[in-house]
Amino acid sequence: MSYPLDTPLGRFGVRNFEDGPDRCVASIPAGDAVNPLTGAPTIAPLAMLVDHAGGLVNHHRRDADEWTVTSELSLELRPEAVEIIAAAPGEPVIATARPFGPKGEIALALCELTHRDVALATATVRSFFISAPDRIAPFSDGPPAPPPPIPFAEKMAVTVAESGGATQVLLQPQDPVLNNSIGIVHGGVSAMALEMVAAAAVNSGRAGAPLRTASLRVNFLREFQSGPESRYVGTALRVGRRTGIAEAQAVGADGRSAIIARVTAYR
């Protein structure tokens, strides 16, 4: 199953192969993804895929009057994941997600990511259950299609506001295609942007071999709305010869952090 282009999943080429409460299998193309802050290939699409596949498994476990909201996402990668994808950029990354433990007030999904049957990453998505909101907007019934052949940053509708130095900033102007079914920026889109600003922060001014993202941890605190002042801010906490740590925030127009993340990178 593919999604229409006027949905966040369709824009990034996500496809479903299995879809149910016991197992979800989905894919995303990642070979053309470039971080607009650094010009280097990025593993950011894997965060989108994890958010989708793991969140979908949790969503299938809801009761009829419930909805799910993702609270945490974690992704642990092989540092050479970018190089593995680059060896066959036309092949998608595959995620296989399963539930972990019984359904309670929260649900946890485990996710394994592969590329041409090579293990790339392991991940988790934790969701909690809320009363079904009144403002759920169904996705359109438009025909599915391949993602548009435009630069990755254009798909995300982000623009570079600040680059260079220990702080890196991407703006998130309004683009309704990037919204989820309750009208806020899709969590997978935000997770991708947070990885990119954090990765750019640890690599700012770095000569020689880049530090490559090995772990991404995201906490969703509140709704994140796109707009002229909405932005992703990445700040390096520590950068050494072989490792780097950065934090990132999605900041709304009110100046409050809506989503926070931490990236650890290695040479």
Rank of each mutant, 00 (worst) to 15 (best):
G183I: 07
V69P: 02
P147F: 03
F224E: 09
E91C: 02
A265L: 04
G244C: 12
N35W: 05
P143M: 08
A166W: 02
G183S: 10
I182V: 14
P147A: 14
A145Y: 07
E72H: 06
A250Q: 13
F128E: 03
H60G: 03
A87F: 07
D134M: 10
Q172E: 07
E247T: 15
Q174W: 11
A44K: 01
A246E: 08
H186V: 13
S257T: 15
R206S: 04
S226K: 00
M48E: 07
C111F: 05
T124P: 00
E112H: 04
D254G: 14
V69I: 15
D32Y: 03
D51N: 11
R206F: 02
A64R: 07
I260D: 07
P45S: 05
R256I: 12
V177E: 01
G188T: 03
V34K: 09
S127W: 04
A44S: 09
N180H: 11
D6R: 07
A40K: 06
R206K: 04
L110C: 05
A119I: 06
A145S: 13
T124R: 11
A95H: 00
A261T: 08
A261C: 13
S2Y: 06
I43E: 03
P148M: 05
L5N: 01
L49T: 12
D134R: 13
D63C: 03
A53G: 09
A214G: 11
N203I: 05
S71D: 10
W67I: 12
P210D: 02
G165P: 08
A161N: 06
R98H: 09
G142R: 09
P144W: 05
E76Y: 07
I84T: 14
V125K: 00
A53H: 08
T114G: 03
L178D: 00
A157Q: 05
A246L: 12
G255W: 06
R241G: 15
